[in-house]
Design a binder for these strands. Structure first.
Length: 611
RNA sequence: GGCCACGUAGCUCAAUUGGAUAGAGUACCUGAUUACGGCUCAGGAGGUUGAGGGUUCGACUCCUUCCGUGGUCACCA
């Protein structure tokens, strides 16, 4: 119906000024609340073309519209802004449009949208950073679906490499045959603890070595002028691991065995991975997310090599004397980048080249979105540039949804300092807070315990999820655990509360659903404002999709909930002055409830019936 | 140091993409509502949008120079 108004305005410009305003200059937006009217047309773009003052243009258009338009009831002009008030007929039909079942979502467009997110390592449990990643990926998937796409959700599981061998070695050395079952530990945490144990053993060995003759000799011959031992050895760690460390040598030997598919190593690897996957599955389930398929690095790490031959032939790549293969990206303002080691094995980008190609072969997706933190911006610039140069047909359809890292009030999360916030702990904590708050209020009586727990889960998770998803993805954010469990103000539970109020009204009214009354109706300012907001929902959905930004929806849901709370407070719904007014308000509330529910669902949050 | 982000109320975040007097939440103060100190509503106070210059009817937004914070510059993934 906004289109309706835009058409009327466009027509008015043609009639009054005999001028065609290009669509991108036709700016119509909701009127700011300190002014009279509901929609505002900005006249400045007309000024140059028509060589007249903005106020005069506004007056002329307003007068014309008031006299001739079927929907404009009044107008006023402030500077170059033409504020229009619309009549009840307009609002009535607008309300019936937003009340349609399919309002907001778009029909299938036959295109495929693939999104990769989460992508954990098998030697560490999921943490707060993964939660931001998962929420973004999951939301984008839902949003794409609402915009008519067929969606494929995927994750890359980093299940191989030297790091994985570390936890295997540590379990062999220290595990004494223990298992997650025998210790009552969640599998991913169980394996993660051995990874940590490995690092401890290694650090101890490294420290001791630094005092040996050999260590001292390395220091004095390689350290830079004036560099102290601490700084030097910090930077020398990888080299030590590869050249001197005993446990390092064993780890590397295991990796070689793994690559040679040594049965014993593979069996151990599969066993430990199984524990981890079970743990991840539990966490995903609790968070309410799932994937359509997984890419395992153990299966993709050899991919991409065929590109190298091809690229060498076409001159995209070049070979160095030591046998390594490179690409020169200077013309794209980047550096030279290695794509194949001198021993002929793939590196990170090469694997990603292969994986992208494989995905396209299999799914022919129209969009492929990687949800990965912004520390990898450069990697994805390189990856996309290479695919472009190789002439891959999907190269232009790739997007890196780059998001800022999550900080704590105390600063950065550092695994070495033990300040990483564990995902499972966090989820339990927010659910616990929801339970506590509810019980202290003494609500939820007369509901079964299982149902209560289900409500605490929904409420607690929405507090956590909303706190994270409301922030623009590209910005680095601060996560304050105290604020994340808040349920007042701009929070998930506040929005849920609006929904619950609506459900409670309907329970009291004794009906499940109402139709829009047909009698001529009047609308007050609060109602008009709500309809304006509801009308924006499709644009919000589209914008969130185009900008890869779920926070737009989060902020929208909040303002809608806020307007409803105010409406609820100021206007009687069940005790409205007339029966038709009551029906109309019920219908409006019902529509708000359904849009609140569907918009929150896009962000991975569920609505409770009570709270 | 090169390159890339970011910088808005004490704190956490917005700002319809270049539009009106930069808005919310939180914390603080006041009132309403409440079976309720603590999931609701209203009001108050809180700002030179990091700094300077430029572009124009109009700049938080675009250009430019500084300052600050973070990231990245591996034959790790």
């Amino acid at each position: 119906m906004l289109a309706n108004l835009q058409a009327e305005i466009k027509g008015a410009i043609e009639q009054v000024f005999d001028y065609q305003l290009p669509d991108n200059q036709l700016i119509v937006s909701p009127t700011k609340k300190e002014f009279e009217g509901e929609y505002t047309f900005v006249t400045f773009p007309l000024v140059k073309a028509l060589k007249n003052k903005p106020e005069v243009l506004g007056e002329q258009m307003g007068a014309y519209l008031k006299a001739n338009s079927s929907i404009v009831s009044d107008f006023n002009v402030v500077k170059g802004f033409l504020n229009l008030s619309l009549n009840d007929g307009f609002w009535s039909s607008a309300l019936s449009t937003v009340g349609e079942d399919t309002f907001g979502s778009r029909p299938a467009n036959g295109k495929t949208f693939m999104v990769e997110f989460s992508s954990p390592n098998t030697n560490k449990p999921l943490h707060l950073g993964h939660i931001r990643n998962i929420l973004l990926g999951w939301s984008m998937a839902q949003i794409a679906e609402a915009n008519g796409y067929k969606v494929i959700k995927t994750q890359v599981i980093n299940d191989r490499g030297i790091a994985v061998c570390k936890s295997m070695i540590a379990w062999q050395d220290l595990g004494e045959g223990k298992t997650p079952e025998s210790t009552g530990t969640k599998g991913d945490h169980f394996v993660g603890s051995y990874y940590v144990a490995f690092e401890q053993v290694f650090q101890k060995e490294y420290k001791a070595w630094q005092e040996t003759e050999q260590g001292q000799e390395v220091f004095s011959s390689l350290a830079k002028e004036g560099q102290d031992a601490g700084t030097f050895f910090k930077g020398y760690k990888n080299k030590y691991f590869n050249e001197y460390s005993a446990i390092g040598a064993r780890t590397k030997e295991m990796l070689l065995k793994w690559e040679a598919e040594d049965p014993e190593v593979i069996t151990l690897w599969k066993k430990m991975n199984g524990w981890v996957y079970e743990g991840f599955e539990t966490t995903y389930k609790k968070l309410g997310v799932n994937f359509d398929y997984n890419n395992y690095e153990s299966e993709t790490y050899l991919l991409g090599k065929e590109f190298v031959d091809e690229g060498l032939k076409s001159g995209v790549f070049y070979k160095k004397d030591d046998g390594s293969t490179w690409i020169d990206l200077e013309s794209a303002k980047m550096d030279h980048k290695i794509v194949l080691r001198s021993d002929g094995t793939s590196v990170y980008v090469t694997q990603d080249l292969g994986t992208a190609h494989q995905r396209y072969e299999q799914y022919k997706m129209d969009h492929l979105v990687y949800v990965v933190a912004d520390e990898q911006d450069y990697h994805f610039k390189v990856l996309f540039e290479i695919l472009k140069r190789l002439g891959e047909p999907y190269a232009e359809s790739l997007y890196h949804l780059s998001y800022g890292m999550v900080d704590l009030p105390s600063g950065k999360m550092k695994s070495r300092e033990g300040t990483v916030v564990d995902a499972d702990d966090l989820v339990e904590e927010v659910i616990g807070e929801a339970r506590k708050a509810s019980q202290e209020r003494g609500g939820l009586e007369g509901i079964s315990t299982e149902e209560q727990e289900e409500i605490y889960r929904k409420v607690g998770l929405s507090a956590l999820k909303y706190f994270i998803i409301k922030v623009n993805p590209k910005k680095r954010m601060t996560f304050d655990p105290k604020e994340s469990v808040d349920m007042q103000g701009q929070t998930g539970p506040y929005i849920q509360n609006a929904f619950v109020r609506i459900q409670s009204i309907f329970r009291k009214a004794g009906v499940a659903k109402v139709d829009q009354p047909k009698d001529a109706l009047e609308f007050n300012n609060l109602e008009r404002d709500l309809i304006v907001q509801l009308s924006q929902y499709p644009h919000v959905l589209e914008e969130a999709f185009n900008k890869y930004d779920p926070s737009i929806i989060a902020n929208y849901s909040y303002t809608l909930a806020k307007s409803f709370h105010r409406f609820y407070h100021d206007c009687r719904i069940l005790n409205a002055e007339t029966e038709s007014l009551k029906q109309n308000r019920l219908y409006l509330s019902q529509t708000i409830g359904s849009i609140l529910e569907s918009s929150m669902q896009l962000l991975g949050m569920e609505m409770p019936e009570y709270m």
